[in-house]
Amino acid sequence: MWRDALLVAGKDLRVEARSRVTTNQVAPYALIVLFVFGFAFDQDQYVLTHIGPGLFWVAVLLCTLLAVQRSFSLEAADGARDGLRLSGLDGGGIFLGKAAAIAAQLVALEAVLAFGIVVLFGAHLAHPLLLLTTCALATVGLAAAGTVYGVMSAGLRVRETLLPLLLLPVAAPIVLGATQAWLAAVGLVTGSGWRWLTLLGAFAAMYLTIGVLAFGTLLEEA
């Protein structure tokens, strides 16, 4: 399974490196989202500082949708999904590989977005260990859930509209937990940020388990 995961992740990342969709389209899109929300919420520094972490995770969530759509549209073109099925790769391995590739893209986007909210919104970055752990768990959770719902909608003609409908409500706990952990880390809310990591960790573990166990079957039905 691990060998298959590495193979699939390598393939997906190589496709992204060659097509440069993430760097040339998704990253600018993420920054535009920050700009637009910034304008919508006025340019009051106090407001922007407080909503910065929330905007960050909303932008990450929207980028997740694009990354997942892209990941599965690769397999929809010219019978590639049949090629993947015919290769006999382990379903759990394909899931882990695709989720890892999506997570790697999200990490790069999060770096760009973090820079954006610091520069544009004057957001504080304190307690780096807590923030990095939050980012890691939330990214794994988003990538895993996105991959599960991505394959569920992959074979449908309405996949472009169905995926957001499925994923956005499901990912709400991640946005909530990650935002609260960040706000707690920079002292904008009371309480420890670490307790939110339990929610993020549980979410990530749940979708990783579901994905490893069910992805093969879901791919067959897609």
Binding site: K11, R18, L74, A80
Partner: peptide, 10 residues
Amino acid sequence: GHATALYDDL
């Protein structure tokens, strides 16, 4: 098959 099962960007 009729489709080539290839990835355009690779």
